[in-house]
Write a protein that binds this DNA or RNA. Structure first.
Lengths: 341, 341
DNA sequence: TGAAAGGACCGTAACGGTTCAGAACCAATA
DNA sequence: TATTGGTTCTGAACCGTTACGGTCCTTTCA
């Protein structure tokens, strides 16, 4: 029976035809995929854990790029891609247990997420993405810290010393306000923590007291958040010469807010982002471009590559500093050098 | 054993603790989801068939919106969403057979797609989206024909009689060129067929010989295709006063091409789209807005609603004609009225 | 002609859970 | 003490498939 469907060489064409005929006549709908999976111990799918509110994943251009890359890798391998529902509100880990998959990809969830813990307990290969290196599972990511350090160096070189920052959420709880040094240090989102620490390092080296730099956090990730974060920072210190955002989406919002206040970018204020999304490119945003699609594809490849003996592996993809039209020396330029060391 | 995990009320706390303890000690990783699915006959996931090259799905704003809506419905119900790999090149239907799901959503695939046929043979509920009503399975969609008819009426009212059209692909084979009436009539993409037929009806009623209207087809769906399609139409008949595109993405490309030729929109030429995507809105595009997110959500709801006795159901969502800044009376306006009936 | 080899076909045992019937146990009541 | 009722626990059947090994039949070659 099974052979008739999957192994035509194991039986004569005549018998095969007869089997298939009567199967049809009896209304047999073909082999059941679940039973097959149980027997062969292959689900033919990989799970993707996003944890975020799903709408986030489909609204954030970087997340979409990642998803596309991952989907491409899966398509190449002929495996399905299962989006595991992981509502961050109810801590319902059951969905992770219920997922019939051959492996997991975990994308940008907080360190302390119970869903992540549940995934790590499952006896299947896992690739974490934009997460700290756990040492036990594969990882793919970029050097967020180094890339942001480089961007900061660029701004320092231009002469900026008095800056403000808008960042994405640092933990699972909502905090739409300024970030304390403690919170910054203990941030559960690896990516945000490292970007901020890259900034802190560069500006500290340049003699800036990082603890005095206003850092506004926003829970939701959209341009409106970027705008309101920028507003909060500018209200606190209207003298800042540069507004550094930890994502392009936030930066685009920040630019809107700058415009609303009559500040011209980059003449009156410098604005920078992170990611290298299309809309940012069109706006000429100074940013760090990261290969989001490649990141997804690499995660998929890593997971689907059967070569077990080399695990765990860690892949760092290259980023590129894009100097656009939104960064320039501070207004007044050289006169303000005395802010420096 | 099973009870210890899932039915704590069926046994004493003491035994439960002992069972779980020894399970942990023996390295038992928790109940196997596949075996559970086999026994309970619930996979806890719905399959999504896209057929398109997957990158298409993640680049097309309308498709992303649909995906988001569907994902939201799934999240609400706590079910997973399985992206079924369906490479249009190799007719590999196995992936459909291998998918362990409780139902399928089929989104915008050609009528004659073998993957669609394979889905319909599976004994699970199915919802087709942007497809002809098959009568046997649930359907959700919009009135493409009527919406486009209405848009055409708007243009006819403005005085346009000499027009050109750029549309998305009509069948599985690549045809980056003009569309013959035959091909138009036999189009395998329900959505495109109906939009074109809505146009044909309206303009025929206005006395235009539809068979003479240049209709350029493009296989790939992006702004570059919109631009090249517009170029082809404008080369064929530089006198057209309106360029009707069957999607916003194509329309945005067409506007770029118009600009490249020194044609101002809408003064020199009217351009219209279809979908109501964000970028189109920002450009002030005249278009038909369709609720893509709602469409995805409706598809999910339909599929996950256990109420079997009312199947098959058919849902038509409302569309809205958006009159933007890209449509105006033809240059010369009233003088050209003699084109009319 | 007989033995060996090979191909076609068939029966059965897992895979790892869930479910359900019934056994075992305990306490309360006639 | 026997009966009843209730709870806790145990064992077996089943979900539908694939893998494996065995039987049977045909062919080939000594």
């Amino acid at each position: 029976m099974s052979n008739a469907y999957n192994r035509p060489d194991q039986l004569s064409p005549e018998l095969r035809r007869r089997v298939l005929d009567t199967a049809r006549r009896l209304g047999y709908p073909g082999p059941d995929p679940v039973a097959r999976s149980l027997r062969t111990r292959k689900a033919g799918a990989v799970g993707l854990l996003l944890t975020e509110n799903l709408s986030y994943a489909f609204r954030d251009p970087a997340a979409i790029g990642f998803l596309e890359g991952l989907a491409l890798a899966c398509e190449d391998a002929g495996t399905g891609l299962l989006l595991v529902p992981a509502n961050p509100e109810r801590e319902d880990v059951a969905s992770v247990h219920r997922a019939g998959v051959d492996g997991f990809v975990v994308y940008s969830v907080p360190d302390d997420d119970p869903h992540l813990a549940a995934v790590l307990e499952r006896p299947v290969p896992t690739v974490v993405c934009d997460q700290p290196d756990l040492g036990t599972v594969d990882r793919v990511g970029i050097d967020d810290r180094g890339a942001m350090y480089e961007l900061a160096k660029h701004l320092i070189g231009l002469g900026h010393r008095r800056i403000g920052v808008v960042c994405m959420r640092l933990a699972r709880d909502r905090n739409d306000g300024f970030v304390t040094p403690d919170r910054q240090h203990a941030a559960h989102f690896h990516v945000q923590r490292n970007r901020l620490s890259g900034l802190a390092e560069a500006f500290s080296e340049a003699g800036v007291d990082w603890s005095q730099v206003p850092v506004a956090e926003r829970f939701d990730h959209n341009t409106a958040s970027g705008a309101s974060g920028a507003a909060q920072v500018l209200d606190r210190d209207p003298q800042i010469t540069a507004l550094i955002c930890t994502s392009d989406v936030l930066a685009l919002g920040a630019m809107t807010e700058a415009g609303r206040r009559g500040l011209r970018v980059p003449h009156d204020i410098t604005v920078t982002g992170f990611d290298g999304i299309r809309a940012g490119e069109e706006a000429g945003l100074t940013t760090v471009r990261q290969p989001v699609l490649e990141k997804g594809r690499a995660a998929g490849k890593l997971l689907l590559d059967a070569n077990e003996r080399t695990r765990p592996r860690s892949v760092n993809l290259a980023t590129e500093l894009i100097i656009g039209k939104t960064s320039a020396p501070p207004r007044g330029g050289a006169e303000e050098r005395w802010f420096g060391p």
